[in-house]
């Protein structure tokens, strides 16, 4: 069917708006990329528009030279891997029983979990609990207080309830499967999409975690990447810039474009993770999210 004039005008308007949105979202990201490859003088003088000026890799070399960035990187990888494993373990152990109709006190326990989304003790009482348990200034402070996210747990629970046929679980029980076996052999293999999505959520949360680190960590050797990023991006503290005076000016200049390179180095690992999860995304998120 041929489109009417009105429809074509409408399409044109929609496309123009979309292109504008595309530019607004993409340009800042694109600018970071080209600035990271450009000469500092050009970036600071505002000569950058669409292409790098004076293409070079010095900013990246400078990132490589900062020891504390790599220490932060290592810590963040450790927290992300360990934290996400703990998250998945605890979230599954919470979501599966609550998804079962034969769980004793199911309604009450679901309420116990959900209520924490509406009301909580607040920053200080939680801090004091963590302090009293004695896990501040340790890796555990980064992974235990946020071992479970109730929203993610409810999404997973709803997925178990609505996407895995109850008959299948019953059949497994009749065949002599215990609950643990049913969970491992029937439920989890059928829940790959939700597991992928929730893994992504948790991993992103750990990779970007800043709050727990500034509250619980005093020992600099434990600092995750985000704390180091803050020192460099927002507080302008660079080890390489201090010290000898030769070439000081150049280093300070390079330090400015180095920030762009650092943004890329710090964000790319988590961004490349996303496309692998993307195909599961709509399926996984919709089931649980609409009605929590």
């Amino acid at each position: 069917m041929k489109k009417s004039l009105n429809d074509r005008v409408f399409d044109a308007v929609i496309i123009v708006i979309s292109v504008l949105i595309l530019l607004m979202v993409a340009y800042p990201l694109y600018f970071v990329i080209i600035a990271s490859f450009s000469k500092p003088e050009a970036v600071l003088a505002g000569k950058l528009t669409f292409l790098p000026v004076g293409f070079n890799l010095k900013s990246y070399q400078m990132v490589l030279q900062e020891a504390k960035i790599w220490r932060g990187y290592r810590n963040t990888i450790l927290y992300t891997v360990l934290g996400t494993v703990i998250n998945l373990f605890v979230t599954t152990l919470c979501a599966y029983p609550l998804s079962r109709k034969d769980m004793p006190c199911r309604t009450f326990l679901t309420f116990v979990a959900s209520f924490t989304m509406l009301f909580g003790g607040g920053m200080i009482p939680v801090y004091l609990v963590v302090k009293n348990i004695g896990i501040t200034d340790s890796i555990w402070a980064m992974v235990i207080p946020n071992a479970l996210n109730t929203y993610n747990m409810l999404v997973m629970k709803n997925y178990f309830q609505s996407s895995i046929p109850g008959e299948l679980q019953e059949a497994a029980a009749i065949d002599g499967c215990s609950h643990v076996q049913t969970l491992l052999k029937v439920v989890l293999p059928l829940s790959k999409s939700i597991l992928a999505v929730i893994t992504l959520f948790y991993a992103v949360q750990h990779w970007n975690a800043f709050f727990n680190a500034i509250i619980y960590l005093r020992d600099e050797s434990l600092y995750p990447l985000q704390i180091i990023l803050r020192e460099i991006l927002l507080q302008n503290s660079l080890e390489a810039v201090g010290g000898d005076l030769t070439g000081m000016y150049e280093k300070v200049m390079q330090g400015e474009t180095m920030k762009y390179a650092l943004i890329i180095v710090a964000s790319v690992p988590i961004l490349i993770f996303y496309p692998f999860v993307q195909k599961h995304f709509t399926k996984g998120i919709m089931v649980g999210a609409v009605k929590g």
């Binding site: 979230t91 919470c94 607040g122 009482p125």
Partner: peptide
């Protein structure tokens, strides 16, 4: 099997008590 479900739930339950409900008790501060 119910016993298994309850044991499974024990880990998250302890977590909820320690990191959500003890802090609520701590509100008296």
């Amino acid at each position: 099997s119910k016993w298994q479900l309850l044991v499974m739930f024990l880990v998250p339950l302890i977590w909820y008590i320690v990191f959500c409900y003890v802090p609520m008790y701590g509100i008296q501060l």
